[in-house]
Write a protein that binds this DNA or RNA. Structure first.
Lengths: 216, 216, 216, 216
DNA sequence: TATGAATGAGTGTTCATTCAT
DNA sequence: CATGAATGAACACTCATTCAT
């Protein structure tokens, strides 16, 4: 039974659960594990981690939220850290927008996608917790990078590379720095506690694409 | 007795401790409160918070690290949250570089200053913990913004405004987006797990100042 | 959540434990809660409260005395106050003597019953602690009144009312004052530190009855 | 400086402080101890003990209430137990009413005096705490008996003996039981949680006296 | 003499984890 | 397979008492 709505959106997909610490015995003897239970646990863990942070998230709360008992969780995951990483590994963000060939519009679309993730309740807290736990549970940060950060950066980089190859950009443009500036602007703005204007992605893209200096 | 080296750098200055919940009585009666103990507690708290995060940081560990007993801490700080905020408030980053009038050099200097803060051991974990604790202990994030984030943003903005006023920048430049892109690039790069090239600030400043697009 | 239990039960040593803050799930799934442990905890709590008083009674000591761990206690009782009230609620004094119709003998029998309670080791200390805690933990006193004081008063009053109805006592006899004088004599004697003579109840009953009986 | 009104009434007298654990050095060298401070400490201790009970009363709170520092207290009293007993020893209740020769009126007057003590805020809590602490700090109960209980019992007994000697009472009346019934009625009524009628002492005296008086 | 600072030993409570059914 | 019961280790915080000024 679901106790609360899951953190993930409806168009979220769950990836294959091949990261479990305690795989079910091969052969199909006995009652098979419920896939719905598997998913409920991972959803609950993800939600708790986002809302309360890894350190504060409690197995008890996850069990209650997923509507299962604690041993049911431990049967699937070796411990708190493994549960958290499994939840993160299973988490799939919304599909990134497909590039259209219009560089500016594509960049804005990707930043809009990022914004939805960051503005989701506790989205920044989730980023915070993986950073805060780096020393204690480094897998969280690596997984976060692999699952959430890297795809977005790749998408941005793809758009920029295409633009460069088509001659839209300067040959010597540092695309790495550009990608960092584009996505980082969100983090910086949030950390500064400043409100996001309605059409926030546009000015950022404009700055990065066009620069601040007066044209010759 | 100091158990560990302090987190703060040698050129760090400690700000006035006016956030204490139980201020020492004015006048000089009785045994004076040891200033070395005051500092040791705040240093230890800051270090524990950076290394383990606010949720995991324990008063016991802070007491041990500072070489004092727990009641000595509670004499000065009303609770864990107050101790953490006091440590944050007392933490003074290195002085920001003074602007020279050379826009590009000034921006690079400020970003270099930021980089030293972020690359300090557990620097990003500190940012992570204030973000992760936003729901539970919002004072941490607001204090962090006030003490660390805002001054840097103001410095960056000052340099950019001067440049705009002197005609160096386009009149319509969105300085807010530019500041976010400049400092955010660090966060994004760290979160991506990518190494920082030797002269990292330069490409970022170049992108923001000059833009990616080919000039007309 | 229930703070007090209903007024059920007449003869069983331990009343039904429906005052628990975290009741066991109905149905028989999972490991059943040990009834021996339930009882051991309540007994230990009652003993500690009588011996050391509510304020001094520690969960640690109760756990040790009951031979269980502290979380085992917290599984059953929401906190120290709830544990103490549960112990008090579960405590059942010896059954009161049944009235025989002989007024004087019945009163003496009830006072003898009271005396056994008061002379039990720490019996008066138990009364003391519920009085001392009135400001801090008023449930203790109300439960004590409900479970221990009220039944005895009712029994005494019943005997006196029967005697009055049968014409043995004066019509205008103040039964309330008489009941108070009868049971209060014990408290006063104890508080005075005076030894209880062998047949103590008899003189008290004689003093009080003499005042109530119809004059010749 | 007095922080709060003292528990004791204005017509309360303080007895000689010859129970101090640490008497001042003989000879009058150095600054003499302030008698006002002595009294403030004892008043504060008495009030705290009545309000919170011996176990919960804290030296810190007493110091604050008395407007002194903790070492000032420890200079005069060897520890918490000694402070509490000193406070109790120094406590003098209102003077008992002088007997007039009218037995019934004298008894009522003494019970009225008792009632004022019992109904004083925390009066019963004070009785409770000395009972609760009997195992831990038996001096409290002995002192309470000596200072508060015994004088009242003696007064009651005096009135009754005079009445017996003057032929008002039966020769064989058990005065001990009668005294216990008279004062105990208060304790019992309070413990039962029943309200005290306006003229409460009268019915109690009537019940007890009726039993003692020679029949017509 | 008096102060404020400092402390060792606890307090009630919670949590990740394992056990018994 | 799944449950509820049980636990060792920790947690933030407090108190009676002593120290240094």
């Amino acid at each position: 039974m679901r106790l609360t709505a899951p953190l993930v959106d409806s168009d979220t997909e769950r990836s294959r659960k091949d990261t479990e610490a305690r795989p079910p015995a091969s052969g199909a003897r006995g009652r098979p594990r419920s896939e719905a239970t598997d998913a409920a646990i991972l959803d609950a863990a993800m939600a708790e981690m986002a809302e309360r942070g890894y350190a504060r998230m409690s197995i008890d709360a996850i069990a209650a939220r997923a509507g299962v008992s604690k041993p049911t969780i431990y049967l699937r995951h070796a411990g708190k850290a493994e549960l958290a990483t499994a939840a993160l590994a299973a988490f799939q963000q919304r599909a990134l927008p497909r590039p259209t060939g219009d560089t500016r519009a594509d960049l804005v679309a990707i930043l809009r996608h990022l914004r939805r993730g960051v503005e989701r309740p506790f989205g920044m807290a989730m980023i915070g917790t993986v950073l805060a736990e780096e020393a204690h549970t480094p897998e969280l940060l690596s997984l976060f990078r692999e699952r959430l950060v890297a795809p977005r950066r790749a998408a941005l980089r793809g758009v920029l590379e295409a633009a460069r190859d088509s001659g839209e950009l300067r040959e010597d443009a540092d695309l790495d720095a550009a990608v960092a500036a584009l996505v980082g602007a969100y983090y910086a703005q949030y950390l500064a506690g400043r409100p996001f204007p309605r059409a926030w992605p546009t000015p950022v893209v404009d700055v990065v694409l066009g620069g601040l200096c007066r044209r010759a």
